[in-house]
């Protein structure tokens, strides 16, 4: 067919489209050059954005200016099947040799498939930790226990003097510092100010508590000097260390568990048992 002569509007649209595609190509070249020169995230991003934006603008102008929009109708046959057709399909299932009529066999098949399905669930159990104790038990036990020494973040055992007043020292059980439920902190407070004694006892004001928030388990590391309060960064629960680490604000409901400590014969701090309660968030069988 013969090419019709374009209208001025079409010509201007075509020029814009070509321009947009040229800009896009320039963006692509720019990306390659940026990458070749050693790469810079910002310029790479800008170049790619320009490349794709050029494509988008070109295609959009093309779609809006050079292609007719609207004016079509498509029929919609709906989803109500002709009754005769539906009846015929139903008849197929009701035929004498149809498997759906053998109820006894179907029941047996159903039983076999159910058994297979249940059996297929068993391998899921392998996803549980094999070599460990049952999960609720594991949550209650921590690496702390009688005689476990307190070490700092570098693994150095701590003496009582290593915990000065008005600071917070993170402490870990010697030998297992990376355990998720073990982190604790030591602070030195004025015993006169205790309105409620710490659950794990104290050594002349030196107290050790679990670091894990009793709400959702985040490390309660925001220590507010002078107030005796610690704050959780995740949901802003705050605990009053002077009142037995009671939860005083925010969504936490239970106090922080304490860690009973003593000074060993070597002069280093050591635990005399596990936390006074399972550390961290609550669970169904938590005592």
């Amino acid at each position: 067919m013969r090419r019709p002569t374009p209208s001025p509007a079409e010509e201007s649209a075509s020029r814009r489209i070509v321009g947009a595609f040229l800009v896009s190509a320039a963006g692509a070249v720019g990306f390659a050059v940026t990458y070749g020169l050693g790469g810079d995230t910002r310029w790479e991003g800008v170049c790619l954005a320009v490349a794709f934006a050029g494509l988008a603008v070109g295609l959009a102008v093309w779609a809006r200016r050079l292609v007719p929009v609207g004016g079509y109708v498509e029929e919609h046959e709906g989803f109500t099947p002709p009754p005769a057709e539906q009846a015929m399909t139903a008849a197929e299932f009701a035929a004498p040799d149809s498997p759906t009529r053998r109820y006894g066999l179907l029941a047996a098949l159903g039983f076999a498939l159910t058994a297979l399905g249940v059996a297929a669930l068993f391998p899921l159990r392998s996803l549980l930790p094999w070599d460990r104790v049952r999960p609720p038990r594991a949550l209650k036990d921590t690496p702390w226990g009688a005689g476990v020494r307190l070490v700092d973040g570098t693994g150095r055992p701590l003496r009582p003097d290593d915990v000065p007043a008005e600071t917070m020292v993170a402490v870990f059980p010697e030998g297992d510092p990376d355990a998720g439920d073990a982190p604790a902190f030591a602070v030195r407070l004025d015993p006169e100010r205790f309105s409620r004694p710490p659950a794990g006892g104290h050594l002349g004001g030196l107290v050790v508590w679990s670091m894990l928030c009793t709400h959702a388990g985040c490390p309660v590391r925001l220590y507010l000097k002078g107030t005796g309060r610690v704050l959780c960064p995740c949901h802003q629960s705050s605990f009053d260390l002077l009142a037995g680490a009671r939860a005083v604000a925010g969504p936490a409901a239970r106090p922080l568990p304490g860690l009973p400590i003593e000074v060993g014969p070597d002069g280093f701090l050591r635990a005399t048992g596990d936390f006074t309660a399972p550390p961290g968030a609550g669970f169904w069988s938590r005592p």
Binding site: R3, P4, T5, S14, V18, L66
Partner: peptide
């Protein structure tokens, strides 16, 4: 007359 064909030639 259709615009696309003409546009293509313009291009």
């Amino acid at each position: 007359p259709g615009p696309v064909r003409a546009a293509l030639r313009r291009w």
